[in-house]
Computed example of a mutant assay.
Amino acid sequence: MKLYLALSVALLCFAANVNARQQKETLLIGVFHFNNPGLDLAKSADFDVMSPKSQEELALITDHIKKFRPTKIFVEWEYNDQPALDTLYDLYLKDAYFDHVQAKFPKSKFYLQNEIFQLAFRAGKKAGLRKIHAIDYQMNWPYDSLQSAMKKAGQATLQQDIDAQIKKVGDEDNALRKKLSLTQLLLEKNTTANRNTNLGLYLTLLNRGGALQDFTGADVVDAWYKRNLYMYSLVQKLTEEKDERVMIIVGAGHAAVFKHFIDMDQRSKVVELSEVLKN
């Protein structure tokens, strides 16, 4: 009983101390991948971020981000490949980036179109930042094992529901890409409804996969959360006390999980893109 009371008092003191500090503002931007590598379960059509209209929108969005004044920007790039990202960003700061990648990777759209280079680099330069921080952490995602486990368990209906939901998400996304601007698409990706739909696929459907004593479905969901926990851990470790405002740019699926993490992190609070664009 004494140990329980002591722990309760300690937790209350911790919460009070954390709340006494100013929470760090985290501009969380979930994106569709601008260069669309086709690696997500839901397949989406291309969207031309290089069009004059999209480029104008990116310029305006990053002007607003400059007013937000982030002191660090985190992106979905392999964290252990930070030196390569540093090299590319240094070229960008010197206005030599696009000439370099067009000469070195003439057949690749990734280095021209990806949100890291079109959005994060542009915002970082306007904000006067000397570095963009990599936080991606790749790990095995056993979706194939889940399909095998569901087949073995006779969960044909569940598999059909998963396939139907994935197709529905892809179809809806493709329809929006045909009628919305880049800014509108980004705002749509960061709505509560969109984030809930994204997470709902994992908990409502995937988590049920496998026979009664086969937790392959839960393992798949666990792997997704674990990857995002590792990524958010890097954000926490790289964020210093002096950093009052930071920005995270990741795929919308990651952002859906990050929103939950940040809401539970007593040292931080989410700032939405919609709020920044109003200022």
Rank of each mutant, 00 (worst) to 15 (best):
M1L: 15
K2L: 14
K2M: 13
Y4R: 15
L5C: 11
S8E: 14
A10H: 04
A10V: 09
A16R: 13
A16D: 11
N19G: 02
N19Y: 15
R21H: 10
Q22S: 08
K24L: 03
K24W: 03
K24P: 01
K24R: 13
I29W: 07
V31F: 10
H33V: 10
N35C: 14
L39S: 15
S44C: 12
D46I: 11
S54P: 09
S54L: 04
Q55E: 11
Q55R: 12
E56Q: 14
L58M: 07
I61A: 03
T62C: 11
D63F: 04
I65A: 01
F68A: 02
P70A: 00
P70W: 03
T71D: 00
I73C: 05
V75T: 03
W77P: 07
Q82P: 06
A84M: 14
Y89H: 06
L91I: 05
L93H: 08
V101A: 01
A103E: 05
F105N: 01
K107W: 05
S108M: 04
S108F: 11
F117I: 00
G124N: 01
K126R: 04
I135L: 08
Y137Q: 06
W141E: 06
Q147W: 14
A153K: 02
T157A: 11
Q160N: 09
Q160I: 07
D161E: 13
D161C: 02
I162H: 03
I162R: 03
V169R: 13
G170A: 08
E172Q: 13
A175E: 09
A175G: 02
K178M: 13
L180H: 15
S181F: 10
L182D: 08
E188T: 12
N190A: 06
T192I: 14
A193T: 10
N194F: 09
N196F: 14
T204Q: 09
L205V: 02
L205Y: 05
L205R: 06
L206Y: 03
A211C: 00
L212S: 10
M231V: 10
Y232M: 04
Y232A: 01
S233D: 08
K237E: 01
T239G: 02
E241T: 13
E244I: 01
R245F: 04
R245T: 07
I248D: 00
G251M: 03
G253Y: 05
A255I: 02
V257F: 11
F258H: 10
Q266S: 14
R267F: 13
V271E: 00
E272H: 12
E275I: 04
